[in-house]
Design a protein around this nucleic acid. Structure first.
Lengths: 124, 124, 124, 124
DNA sequence: GTGGTCTAGACCACA
DNA sequence: GTGGTCTAGACCACT
């Protein structure tokens, strides 16, 4: 279900956070759906339960899921806030990147062409 | 001259590297120009000389400046290779960001509009 | 495991870099293999951890190993690019050396004989 | 007469040493010939007299020239020792380089071919 | 004065 | 435990 690379420089818990986030955002994990338990996932991925717990806590903190003590973790219902927040962050990054490329001498036409291509070819 | 936030999560030396890189790329620091000495800058910014040294070494490695022991540090002359290399990296980042925003539901029209605006308003 | 001469003119961290590089290139350190930790090696060699760190960082930068924070340092997998790059540098050095020896009056026959002998007797 | 690059990483005095050494070894500066005075050369090259002096001292130490107080510096007569000493050093370097290239997977045939080519094309 | 290397000792995030 | 960053203070060669 998840692809974890323990050799990667990005912390394991962060890889998990990002992948779950992706699954939620593209709708593969639906609201109210229950996530695998910490223990089960730790066995599946051969990863320390603490690391799984840390990922879940982070996602809870971000509002993507909520944990019910004794029951498990579930995908949040109202994800609009989360979505827009994440989008705002991305847009801020995008703005910085655009300015950096402008500084590096990229013309507006070239830039728009490349952005359009990236949009069309990505994750069709 | 530089704005360093010692409390930031990004290392101090990296902040310095990025800021100097910007100054060089936008031309505020001209080729052959001498940079402030390690000691002087360490006093100005209240930062340990070793940290400044680390930043300068990194910039030397990246080809943005070259240091001459006993003389000082100077901005590089031929920056075209560096410029194109940096641009390639930025473009790769841009592509990823565009795809992420697509996943988050941003339409192509909105995206292109925002990119255009960012380009026009940035560092006029 | 390593032979460090603290009195040498070549920096300690550079000696380390070269020796590890050799071990990796001749295959004594295999891909994915974990290197001794910064602290352990610093104790073994009676060298400051920072110096070991500097050597490991340099090797990371060169692509010979990769370090994973909290886990350790490991020999890289795909070393072919590194190998060819290093070979290009060596060949450039070789050319300069050959010309220097020509200037010093060495005949082509003598030179080729010596090169052949060196090749046969080295690291059989 | 000399080409000094003050921006170079190799110390100025060392550049001078190497260039004079080359001139002597290839015979452009003949035995007993007088070298330019420290003051004259310092003016010609716009370099601190101390630096010139340091270069001359080094060459004296190496036996390539000898200085007569009150008269000046002269190219040595018996350069055979110097020549053979330098050649020994170069040959030692050559041996190391050959072994390094062997480690990097270069075949003997390729190596000999490259050495021959370098010899033929260099400083004809 | 300059850059470069090194030590000693500290703190952090991550596993 | 691991790697990574930072400080304080020292020494070196070179100009």
């Amino acid at each position: 279900m998840f692809q974890i690379d323990v050799m990667s420089r990005t912390p394991v818990y962060e890889q998990l956070v990002e992948q779950i986030e992706q699954l939620v955002l593209i709708g593969l994990l639906e609201p109210e759906e229950q996530l695998p338990s910490v223990r089960q996932l730790s066995i599946e991925l051969s990863i320390n339960p603490n690391t799984i717990q840390k990922a879940y806590s982070e996602l809870d903190r971000r509002g993507l899921l909520f944990s019910v003590p004794g029951k498990g973790c579930f995908v949040s219902k109202n994800l609009e806030n989360v979505l827009s927040a994440r989008r705002d962050i991305r847009l801020k990054d995008l703005r910085e990147l655009v300015i950096a490329l402008k500084v590096l001498g990229l013309s507006k036409e070239e830039l728009l062409k490349l952005v359009g291509e990236a949009y069309d070819t990505g994750l069709t």
